[in-house]
Each structure stands twice: as C-alpha cells, then as structure tokens.
C-alpha cells in the first residue's frame, strides 16, 4: 500500500495530478486507488493538496495517514506537508519554487524543474504532467501506458498531445535521475568496498 500526497498552490493542477494518476492506476494498472481532496476555504487559498491511497487490495481507509510520497510544488506546500512525510519517504519537489531545508537524510529527495521544462514545451500549465511523468519514473507507482490511457477526458482535447509530451519529458527526466542516482549509489558502494 502506498499513500501519496500531491501539493502546491491553486492553479498548478494539483487535484488533476491525483485524478489522472488515480484513474490510471485503478482503471488501467489493475490496482486500487482512492482519491481525496481538500474542500472549502482550505482548498482555495494557500497550500492545496490532493491525496491518493494505492493498494493491491481494496482500499479500506480512504485517507492518507503517513504519506510515503509527497509531491510539493510550492514553498507553502513544502513547509506544511514535508514534516508529515514518513521517514524514508519519497519527496518530489519543484526545485525552482521550493527552497529546501538542509538534507538530513530523513527522506529521499527528488528535485525537478517541472515548471521550466513545461515552459520549454510552450506552457507552464503542462507542469503537472511533467510532474506525473517524473513521479511515475521515481515511484513506479503507475505505468506510463496507464497514464496515457487515462489522459483523454481529463485534459482538453487540443492539449492532449502536449500533455503526453510533458509526461514523457518528466518520465525521461526521472529515469535519467534514477540512473545517475543508481550510478552514484553504486559508485559509493564501490568506494566503500575499496576503502
């Protein structure tokens, strides 16, 4: 079972992130996903969040308790939700928008300049799809195929292609980072062994 929180500020497509990922997982990846979101005044100003509980079996408790994955796309969201992320959890941050605390090794940090990548693709609105691609590569929680099947109806038709591209970019960026990280980890192991 995995608990995921997407967070950021209003307008970044935070709810859409969970909708797309949840739909992909539960309809096309043969797993269960339950999505919840904040409503009311809490959902409007400041930090906005949406949550997913993903499981091989039916999800019973629908809310996240101790998230294993936190996606933080804004400073406020990072400040608010980072302390709730479980030890050893995966933290995905928008590196250009979030100034992080010093890395204590409590969680695994995966930074991405998602907004910049989206702007290179023509529109910063695609940043959430870049993030989902990155999320898929880093967490393996959802397959790229499933996300692409889930996209129609959840993004405007005329932007479908661009959103797919954004996903691919984020996914590739994530895979590169994982490869580098794996390489770095291996190097560290080798170094350790040599010593």
């Amino acid at each position: 079972m995995m608990e995921v929180r997407f967070s950021g500020f209003g307008g970044q497509g935070i709810v859409r992130c969970a909708l797309i990922t949840g739909k992909a997982i539960s309809l096309y990846d043969d797993k269960y996903a339950t999505m919840t979101q904040s409503f009311g005044p809490e959902a409007r100003g400041g930090a906005c969040s949406s949550q997913l509980v993903v499981s091989e079996n039916r999800v019973l408790y629908p809310y996240v308790t101790v998230p294993g994955v936190l996606v933080a796309l804004s400073q406020e969201a990072y400040n608010k939700y980072e302390p709730e992320l479980g030890n050893g959890g995966i933290l995905i941050v928008e590196q250009d928008l979030v100034k992080q605390k010093p890395d204590t090794g409590r969680v695994q940090i995966f930074p991405i300049p998602a907004t910049r990548i989206a702007e290179e693709l023509g529109n910063r609105l695609f940043a959430n799809l870049v993030v989902i691609g990155f999320f898929a590569a880093v967490t393996k929680c959802v397959t790229p195929d499933a996300v692409k099947k889930a996209l129609p109806e959840l993004v405007p038709g005329r932007f479908l292609k661009a959103n797919m591209q954004a996903f691919d970019k984020g996914y590739a960026y994530g895979n590169d980072l994982m490869a580098t990280k794996a390489g770095a980890d291996k190097m560290a192991e080798v170094c350790e062994a040599v010593e």
Binding site: A18, L19, G22, K23, S26, L27, Y32, A33, T34, M35, T36, Q37, F39, V59, P62
Partner: peptide
Amino acid sequence: ETVGHMHEK
C-alpha cells in the same frame, strides 16, 4: 461527505 467526494473506480 467522504463517500460523496472521494474518487474511486
């Protein structure tokens, strides 16, 4: 509210 607002398959 929980069932009303939560998304599932």
